[in-house]
């Protein structure tokens, strides 16, 4: 009886780590975010009567606001645990990391809490983005003429 119970408990935690299911879930959720973003872009370019290239900026800002708000309300963490890279790789993950780290360190005060910890996780994206973009941008400017 105990052995069956044990096996049951082990299976319950094992199924969470199934790599193929993780892959399918992150594909579907990531794809859904992509499809929603196209819908938002079309909506904005239709309502505001602007070219779709400008509407993408509004779309990205909307995604950031939504993921910040849902993280602050407390249920975006569960979605990220479920969808993993499906929500981490899109821009929602960037906003989620900033929002959750500033919420987490709020109790340490405004300067040393929110101010210095907001970019705790998102800072690496900006640092390596800027370093690599300046390196590759210089290469492209010198060899391909901008």
């Amino acid at each position: 009886m105990d052995r069956i119970k044990y096996k049951h408990i082990v299976d319950k935690y094992k199924s969470d780590e199934n790599k193929i299911i993780n892959l399918v879930i992150s594909f579907l959720i990531g794809g859904l975010v992509g499809a929603i973003s196209v819908g938002l872009t079309d909506l904005y370019s239709y309502i505001l009567d602007i070219p779709s290239k400008d509407a993408t900026t509004f779309m990205i800002v909307t995604l950031i606001i939504i993921s910040c708000l849902f993280t602050a309300l407390g249920f975006f963490d569960k979605w990220v645990t479920f969808a993993k890279c499906g929500l981490i790789i899109p821009i929602t993950g960037f906003a989620h990391s900033m929002m959750s780290s500033s919420l987490e360190f709020k109790k340490e005060g405004f300067i040393y809490g929110i101010g210095s910890n907001m970019f705790k996780l998102a800072g690496s994206v900006i640092v390596y983005g800027v370093v690599s973009a300046s390196l590759f941008g210089t290469i492209r400017y010198v060899f391909f003429g901008g």
Binding site: N22, F27, I29, G30, G31, V33
Partner: peptide, 11 residues
């Protein structure tokens, strides 16, 4: 398909 593939690659 594109966003899904990038996310699946990350996963």
């Amino acid at each position: 398909i594109f966003v899904g593939l990038v996310s699946a690659l990350g996963q």
